[in-house]
Amino acid sequence: MAAKFFSSATPVLLLLLLLTVTCFFTPSLSEKCNPQDKTALLQFKKELGNPAKLSSWNATTDCCDPAWEGVSCDTDTKTYRVNDLDLSGFSLPSPHPIPPSVGDLPHLNILSLRNIPNLIGPIPSAITKLTSLHYIYISQTGISGNIPDFLSQIKTLVTFDFSYNKLTGPLPSSISTLPNLVGITANDNKLSGAIPDSYGSFSNLFTSLTLNRNQLSGKIPASLSKLNLAFVDLSMNMLEGDASVFFGSKKNTQKIILARNSLAFDLGKVGLSSNLNTIDLRNNRVYGKLPQELTGLKFLKKLNVSYNSLCGQIPQGGNLQRFDVYSYAHNKCLCGSPLPACKT
């Protein structure tokens, strides 16, 4: 019967039948998604337990389609490789580690896994296969373990944010070899130990160090004086010693936040960046006088030197009298407006 049909069918009908069968069994010729990237994403979904949030990741559709949740492809160069994976804010029904299949997306430029409480386990070594990765954002998760040394293998890395996790252990000294790193953010973890001396050898691109609310201890390395940090926040740790290394009149520093440590240095002898808008040194052991140069900081919006061992008269002028009593309170013998007048 089939033979009779084909022998009597017109060439047009045979062509239509062939096209129908081909379209049914093969991907659309218009699909832009790279097959390897698609396979990796579907495996990633499987390793996360096929969450309902990723139901848009469908094997029959194009992974470069905007319908695929959190997936972006490179449309600028028309290569259509997956270069951005952002699954921030989606909930996992049960705890899962970061799938190792994330390493099978070789053109990934940005990896964002933020605000996913059920994301657990260590940072996987598979990310070292991501040789085009510039930005890693893994924050507000249940990720634990150390910040791994193998991050130093990702030479394209520009910055990473590991804040609000459950990371422990020391800071890896090896990341100072990353040539393009501009900043580290790892606040609100349980990191411990000293800041590595090698961090003074970061390139001149490095401008941000945010490690507040951890359990870091030891002295601030003198080598950090080589850095020209725009932003540094080491508050609420157990750090000791001389933090004057972060100051300097020739630096471009905007914010220095070192509150609630055991830091001790003569504040009257530091140089001040003209760009400073925030200085928070409260609850330390800082001594000396407030430098007269503070009055010339036209961008200064926040100053708190309370609970230290400062003495002398608060310089008059600039923004210094706009700060309230609590910004200067509980020092050894600091006086003058807005505190009570100095005794003659």
Rank of each mutant, 00 (worst) to 15 (best):
K226L: 07
C335A: 06
L334N: 01
A259V: 01
F5A: 15
K78E: 13
N237G: 10
A341H: 07
K301N: 13
P148M: 02
L320D: 03
Q153W: 00
L42M: 08
L29N: 10
N189S: 10
A243Y: 05
R213D: 13
T141C: 11
S88I: 06
L18R: 12
P35V: 08
N283A: 12
D233C: 05
L133E: 11
V305Y: 03
D65L: 05
P340H: 08
L14W: 09
L263N: 08
G288Q: 02
C335P: 00
P221T: 05
T60S: 14
N261R: 07
F150Q: 08
G193V: 00
P148Q: 04
S56K: 07
S173L: 04
D84S: 10
A264D: 13
F202Y: 04
S198K: 11
S273Q: 12
F247R: 11
S176W: 04
D266V: 01
T20V: 10
K269A: 11
S94A: 14
P315G: 00
F44W: 07
I220L: 10
G271A: 08
N283R: 14
T79V: 01
K250Q: 14
D188G: 02
K155F: 01
N275Y: 01
F150C: 12
D266W: 01
N180R: 05
D324S: 14
M236Q: 11
L157R: 05
K251Q: 13
Q36I: 02
A126H: 09
P11M: 06
N50P: 06
P340D: 15
I138T: 15
N115M: 06
M1G: 14
I123K: 11
D233E: 14
P221W: 09
A126M: 03
T156G: 12
V12A: 15
S101D: 11
L258W: 08
L133H: 11
S28Y: 06
N118E: 10
H107Q: 07
N228Q: 11
P93Y: 06
R114K: 13
S176F: 03
L334E: 02
P117L: 08
V102S: 12
D324L: 02
G318K: 00
F246E: 14
L14Q: 14
P179E: 11
S223T: 13
F247V: 07
Y80D: 11
L239R: 09
G103V: 01
K250L: 07
R213F: 05
L339F: 00
P124G: 08
I256Q: 12
I127A: 15
C73H: 07
K289T: 09
Q292H: 00
N275P: 04
N165V: 02
N228C: 11
S152Y: 03
G241F: 00
P11W: 06
L130F: 06
G317H: 04
I147L: 11
K251W: 02
V270G: 02
G312A: 00
L310A: 06
F150D: 15
R322A: 03
A67I: 05
L300D: 12
L320Y: 00
K155N: 09
K251I: 04
S262R: 07
